[in-house]
Amino acid sequence: MKKLTLIKVAELAGVGIATVDRVLNERGGVRPETVRKVLRAARQAGLQRLLPDDTQHPWQIEVFLSSNGTWFFQQLADEFAQIADRLGYRKIKLFRTLVNENPPEKLAEKIKKSSELRDGIIVYGHDYPVIHQALLHCHEKGIPVITLVSDLPGAQRFCHVGINQYQAGRTAGLLMSKSMKTPGDVIMVSGRFDFSAHIQRIAGFRDALTQRAPWLRLREVLAGEDERHKIRALLKQTLLQADNVVGLYNSGDNNSDISALLQQQQLTDCCYITHELYDVTRLLLQQGTLSYTLDQNARQHAVISTDLLIRHLETGFQPDIYQDGRVELRIVTAENMA
């Protein structure tokens, strides 16, 4: 083994040559996370020798999810826990951390700190410069990061796992155009208009409806900031002002409040489209209040992202940034609920 190669491994792992020697010759006395770093660096450096079996040290993966309390993120957290239980502690040690989306600096600091302790990171974050900087920090340290649900174009992420959010919006627009053939107003409600997933969904919906249904009039987007009282106030005012509401598309949450207002205004024939299949939307579909819901499939997000990360850590697999992490959108009606 050439000394220059050992030096390169030490530099990549950020440790001394003595530590590299202890790990490669299995002398012990090295923390598991440091063992991981050295073995990962050895593979990266193309070290031509049989490396120690690192399966005795479970892969340490941290998952950062939103703490906003919506069903989707609660379900995601549960799905990741089930995956960790199924793989077992000898295979993976998974840490789930819930972080408020604002301020983004808080998440950025947690990502950087995690890069010192974990073998890989899965993160739901938004398109802020400080988050891009955190992912660049991870990239420079050789820690793979998978973005989840909401992509960060141009960031140094390993790959992205999620649905095509723009396509989801276009799908909603297509469904609206096929369902409503008479002229009228269509209302768009967005959870957070500064978050890329909502921006892309609304843009897709607007584009599809403009192209396919010129007889439908799109009103200005109601940006409720994920605040129930604000969404209620904005929607109530709009419903009172509009002459003939025939459709409503909600890119976010708060479907209980939205459906209640539609019922108060006796808009029973309104084509109402939203996202995710959970207890509220399931009931609204059964009642006939909700026309369609577009489900992201939380389970697939957890399974695909964990699988891609472990394959990379174990074999060096390099996925396509979008294709390998693509999650299929499911259109759910009252007739095909699982």
Rank of each mutant, 00 (worst) to 15 (best):
residue 25 N to Y: 12
residue 301 H to Q: 13
residue 326 R to G: 03
residue 60 Q to N: 10
residue 229 H to S: 15
residue 83 I to T: 04
residue 135 L to Y: 07
residue 73 F to Q: 06
residue 295 D to S: 06
residue 90 R to E: 14
residue 11 E to L: 08
residue 84 A to Q: 08
residue 306 T to K: 00
residue 12 L to D: 11
residue 234 L to W: 03
residue 23 V to L: 03
residue 189 V to G: 03
residue 145 V to G: 04
residue 123 V to Y: 02
residue 179 S to Q: 14
residue 225 E to L: 05
residue 174 L to W: 04
residue 157 R to C: 12
residue 106 K to F: 11
residue 250 N to Y: 00
residue 110 K to N: 06
residue 186 V to E: 01
residue 110 K to V: 01
residue 47 L to R: 05
residue 111 I to N: 09
residue 71 W to L: 05
residue 202 I to T: 10
residue 41 A to Q: 09
residue 147 T to H: 02
residue 323 Q to L: 14
residue 156 Q to H: 15
residue 203 A to I: 01
residue 328 E to S: 15
residue 173 G to A: 02
residue 14 G to E: 07
residue 312 H to S: 13
residue 251 S to M: 02
residue 25 N to R: 15
residue 11 E to A: 14
residue 292 Y to I: 06
residue 101 E to N: 14
residue 225 E to M: 03
residue 116 E to K: 12
residue 222 L to A: 02
residue 165 Q to P: 02
residue 54 D to R: 15
residue 291 S to I: 00
residue 94 L to P: 07
residue 60 Q to K: 13
residue 225 E to Q: 13
residue 198 H to F: 07
residue 92 I to W: 00
residue 186 V to T: 03
residue 30 V to P: 09
residue 267 L to C: 04
residue 287 Q to E: 15
residue 52 P to W: 11
residue 336 N to A: 09
residue 322 Y to I: 09
residue 193 F to P: 00
residue 85 D to W: 02
residue 99 V to F: 10
residue 78 D to F: 08
residue 148 L to A: 00
residue 26 E to S: 15
residue 77 A to N: 04
residue 188 M to I: 15
residue 156 Q to I: 00
residue 119 D to V: 06
residue 209 L to G: 02
residue 35 V to K: 11
residue 132 H to S: 06
residue 280 V to C: 08
residue 94 L to D: 06
residue 59 W to M: 04
residue 235 L to R: 04
residue 55 T to Y: 08
residue 309 L to N: 04
residue 20 V to C: 07
residue 266 Q to S: 15
residue 57 H to I: 12
residue 22 R to A: 07
residue 309 L to H: 05
residue 249 Y to N: 00
residue 106 K to H: 13
residue 237 Q to E: 15
residue 335 E to A: 13
residue 193 F to R: 06
residue 134 A to N: 07
residue 36 R to G: 14
residue 210 T to A: 09
residue 311 R to I: 01
residue 135 L to I: 05
residue 297 N to R: 15
residue 49 R to H: 05
residue 23 V to A: 05
residue 333 T to L: 01
residue 276 E to N: 10
residue 167 Q to C: 05
residue 302 A to V: 02
residue 156 Q to Y: 13
residue 85 D to K: 13
residue 23 V to I: 04
residue 41 A to S: 12
residue 156 Q to F: 11
residue 37 K to S: 14
residue 177 S to V: 01
residue 185 D to M: 01
residue 272 Y to W: 06
residue 157 R to W: 08
residue 330 R to L: 07
residue 27 R to A: 14
residue 66 S to R: 10
residue 88 G to S: 04
residue 248 L to I: 08
residue 313 L to M: 05
residue 104 P to W: 08
residue 188 M to Y: 05
residue 275 H to D: 01
residue 199 I to H: 07
residue 328 E to M: 10
residue 250 N to H: 00
residue 10 A to K: 08
residue 78 D to Q: 15
residue 258 I to W: 04
